[in-house]
Amino acid sequence: MTSDELSLEEALDDLEAIVSYLEEGKMSLEESLALFEKGIHLVRQCRLSLEKAEQRIEIITGELPPDLRG
């Protein structure tokens, strides 16, 4: 499972964490703004990956392992 950028799962997890941080409201204004910006970026990324719905389908072909060979 190679992926250079964040997977949808990681992006959504991060996003949820960011929202709850922001909702706690314990950060400085600068921190809040930086997080907000990051959050917006994540939203965009998730949306993009959902719109693309990129799929890679592969079919396994191969020989039987020795213990399963007749």
Binding site: I18, L22, G25, L29, F36, G39, V43
Partner: peptide
């Protein structure tokens, strides 16, 4: 995916609201 997209919208909204109420 429809639900996920809706979730994203609500997350975005919560984020904006949180930022505003923080301010």
């Amino acid at each position: 995916t429809t639900e996920l997209t809706a979730d994203l919208v609500s997350l975005e909204r919560r984020m904006v609201r949180a930022l505003w109420s923080g301010l």
